[in-house]
């Protein structure tokens, strides 16, 4: 692999052939020894559970030990004949698109603001990253208090500023907008950090060339900044999309538990309720398998772009 290493190998093989072979074999095994504990852990907690979840999705909803029997695609057919499934898919789609678009917009705005040189730049970077450091549960609690219809500060502010006082969490469609907003507040620092890295990787010469061509700030933004951020934006959007669709749980669950009237019931919340509230492990696992499949399709796109961009 490296010149020095091959010299070392040559030197040690000079000192005795049997020793050299043993040394070399041990060296070949080293990577696998380093990886073994990690591989075992990933198998036990990721790959075996996925196999189990898929298996459960083909079993009946019997929670007595050993009581579940194979039912084929029955759970899947229950799901695709339920109107609530399509409603949850729609809510998940709206929540996901909302997160993707808004995290990108706010992330980009934040990145543009703290990108340049100015006094206190580091301080403002810390300030804008703060939501990322607040735990999910605390985030949900704070916003639940601010959203409170009777005494919440947000109702007071919206009434003062806009003259309307929406019941943020107990009326549709406000509830979905509210949980999306809170998720965006928590996630936009990630977008900001990624897009900031993207901004810093755009060569200065491109801006200079644009200025020579007589481009103003807006034209520079459209013709230099946006194209320069294309790849990183695709990654950010896919990542936020995959996470919002398949992994987002705590904020929505703590704020609304999927209500009011299923108005914020994403597919994840629905699957969670199926298993842990209605005790339908089969149906829940089938729903989870559907979520997994959709997530993996988008992950495949993400990884394909990632590996292509590395070449």
């Amino acid at each position: 692999m490296d010149k020095e290493v091959s010299i070392a190998t040559a030197l040690s093989s000079g000192s005795g052939r049997r020793f050299a072979l043993g040394w070399r074999r041990r060296e070949q095994l080293t990577p696998y020894l380093f990886l073994l504990p990690c591989a075992v852990a990933l198998t036990v907690v990721y790959f075996y559970p996925i196999f189990e979840a898929i298996k459960t999705s083909f079993e009946s909803n019997d929670i007595s030990p050993g009581g579940a029997s194979l039912v084929g695609f029955k759970n899947y057919s229950t799901i695709i004949h339920s109107k609530y499934f399509y409603q949850a898919l729609e809510i998940s789609a709206l929540y996901t698109i909302g997160n993707v678009v808004l995290v990108w917009i706010f992330g980009l705005s934040g990145a543009l603001l703290v990108h340049g040189e100015f006094a206190g730049r580091w301080f403002f970077r810390c300030v804008l990253i703060l939501p990322w450091a607040v735990p999910y549960v605390a985030t949900a609690l704070i916003w639940s208090w601010m959203f409170s219809y009777e005494f919440g500060v947000l109702r007071y502010l919206t009434a003062e500023v806009a003259g309307v006082a929406p019941d943020f969490l107990n009326r549709n469609p406000y509830a979905l907008m509210s949980v999306t907003g809170v998720s965006v507040w928590k996630a936009f620092p990630l977008g900001m950090v990624m897009l900031l890295a993207g901004l810093q990787s755009i060569p200065k010469e491109q801006y200079e060339a644009a200025v020579v061509d007589g481009a103003g700030p807006i034209s520079q933004f459209i013709h230099v900044t946006l194209p320069g951020l294309k790849t990183i934006s695709i990654f950010l959007m896919l990542l936020i999309g995959i996470w919002s669709f398949g992994r987002a749980f705590t904020i929505v669950y703590v704020l609304t538990s999927g209500g009011p009237a299923r108005g914020t019931e994403t597919v994840v919340i629905q699957a969670y309720h199926e298993v842990f509230r209605f005790f339908h492990p089969g149906t829940g696992a089938a729903l989870a398998t559907i979520i997994l499949t959709i997530s993996l399709v988008f992950s495949a796109i993400y990884l394909a772009i990632l590996y292509r961009s590395e070449e």
Partner: peptide, 30 residues
Amino acid sequence: LRYRGRAVFSLLILTTQMIPTLVLIIPLFQ
């Protein structure tokens, strides 16, 4: 280190971050 299966392993590591947590929680509970 360089060894066989390196690319597959890093792919698997990345994929774990895309897997919905709930898919793991149901069987982990059992």
